[in-house]
């Protein structure tokens, strides 16, 4: 009887898991994130592996069109400038399909990067292959990785989208500080509103 139920259990697991194959499981804290090789607005390709001496990576899924992402543009730029000298490299990835969301096409990204003098690579998720692996669902959506690409923090940049001046908790900066001190960030994940990622129809 035991054997039969075990057999059924094995079959059931096999049966259900076979359906989940095509949907990657979103990263959780402690998972190792994939590297990528993506084109930036300067026409060059960027990978995390290029930054041999990095202490960590700030991966920001963001885009041109989303009002929520726009509210964070300047803050993202400031973070990139502030943390690069400290060894934390900010890489922004636009996950949206350029047909589904024309405001987020490559040329528009180049224009926006120039207007706002982005101090970070602004990468195209060509073919939308990277964001599903990370489990990004919206813009902006931040993943903080340590130098071994282990996911340490997932969520929002801070707790006030409307005004940088009124922020009470700088979630991302606190998480970087925790990493610097060899600690785990607290909180490790936060929630925030954002624009859903626009996929190819």
């Amino acid at each position: 009887m035991k054997k039969v139920s075990l057999f059924i259990a094995v079959i059931a697991v096999f049966f259900f898991s076979s359906f989940a194959v095509n949907v990657p499981v979103p990263y959780k804290i402690g998972d190792k994130a994939t590297d990528f090789k993506l084109k930036s607005v300067d026409g060059k390709m960027y990978s995390m592996a290029d930054y041999k001496n990095a202490k960590g990576f700030i991966i920001v899924f963001t885009c041109n069109h989303c009002p929520f992402a726009k509210k964070y543009e300047d803050r993202i730029n400031d973070l990139a400038k502030k943390y690069k000298p400290q060894g934390y490299i900010l890489l922004a990835i636009n996950p949206n399909d350029p047909i589904a969301q024309p405001d987020d096409n490559y040329e528009a990204m180049q224009v926006r990067a120039k207007e706002k003098a982005f101090a970070f690579p602004y990468l195209v998720d060509e073919g939308q292959k990277i964001y599903p692996q990370y489990g990004a669902t919206k813009t902006p959506h931040v993943f903080l990785l340590d130098k071994n690409r282990i996911v340490k923090y997932i969520g929002a940049i801070d707790d006030n989208v409307d005004s940088a001046a009124d922020v009470k908790e700088k979630y991302l900066e606190n998480a970087i500080a925790a990493l610097e001190n060899g600690k785990n960030p607290s909180p490790e994940t936060t929630k925030a509103i954002g624009c859903s990622i626009k996929t190819k129809k």
Binding site: D159, D162, Y171, K191, A192, I193
Partner: peptide, 20 residues
């Protein structure tokens, strides 16, 4: 309410924050 981290889980724990 901008304290998303507080109220989004009150709606649903699995909500990532994307709308709709």
């Amino acid at each position: 309410d901008k304290d998303y981290n507080n109220w989004l889980p009150m709606v649903n724990n699995e909500w990532s924050g994307a709308i709709p």
